[in-house]
């Protein structure tokens, strides 16, 4: 698992983020998130609010966003809960970034199915662009982390960049995606395999073939 640490609480950090407050759009969303829970249970909205705060920080810094200590304290104030409890949540979930990240957060899956399908090559492709594990490139464009299974094994290898998944990757396809992102374009998300839509079988069906046209009871055939 990636080693995580909190960005140190410095006077500069306080100066930059101490005045953090919702912009109108996020304020409305936060209100809606809190309203989902019964009176007295507002703190259940902590994950939603941390996400919104991270996204607003992302908008302000033109990155994926992250959670400086003063912003975490802001969320704690919003929900009237102890900061340490908010910090526990923020540090538990790897989706919350605790240190500044780049414009695109490239999270390559390196777990077994992806590895068998060539995630090492995808990682090599990233490293060729100067990314390396846990760091942000100098131009601030890429933050690269290797992560564990994201549940896209049927279309391995895959990578998650900010909110989108890109699947069925090859080094060339990965290059194309990164190039497009660097140009500011939005590449096609999901599978990159031509002709494939989601995670339906690539090529012909190899299992449960009798189920193609109608429901079929296999139980009698179990040996």
């Amino acid at each position: 698992m990636a080693e995580r640490s909190i960005e140190p609480d410095t006077p500069e950090l306080r100066a930059r983020w101490g005045q953090f407050a919702w912009t109108q759009g996020w304020a409305d969303k936060a209100k809606a998130a809190i309203a989902r829970y019964p009176e007295g249970r507002q703190r259940s909205a902590v994950m939603a609010l941390l996400d919104y705060a991270q996204r607003q920080v992302g908008e302000e810094t033109n990155t994926q966003g992250w959670l400086p200590i003063p912003v975490i304290e802001f969320v704690a104030r919003e929900l009237s809960m102890p900061v340490i409890r908010v910090l526990e949540v923020a540090t538990f979930y790897t989706m919350f970034n605790l240190v500044p990240v780049g414009r695109y957060h490239v999270q390559v899956c390196g777990t077994t199915p992806c590895m068998l399908r060539g995630s090492d090559d995808i990682i090599a492709t990233c490293e060729k662009r100067g990314m390396h594990h846990g760091h942000t490139t100098k131009d601030g464009l890429w933050t690269f982390t290797e992560v564990e299974c994201m549940g896209n094994c049927a279309s391995a290898p895959m990578v998650q960049i900010n909110d989108d998944n890109y699947e069925d990757l090859t080094p060339e396809r990965m290059d194309a995606i990164l190039d497009a992102l660097a140009r500011g374009e939005q590449p096609k998300t999901g599978t990159q395999e031509p002709g494939r839509h989601t995670v339906e079988p690539a090529g012909a069906l190899s299992t449960l073939t009798a189920m193609v046209d109608e429901n079929h009871d296999y139980r009698g055939e179990w040996a």
Partner: peptide, 19 residues
């Protein structure tokens, strides 16, 4: 007084006071 917490998770879990 909520001041001690468990940060991170799994093997990286750490007990600490806030900051």
């Amino acid at each position: 007084v909520d001041e001690i917490g468990a940060l991170y998770r799994g093997e990286s879990m750490q007990i600490t006071t806030y900051l």
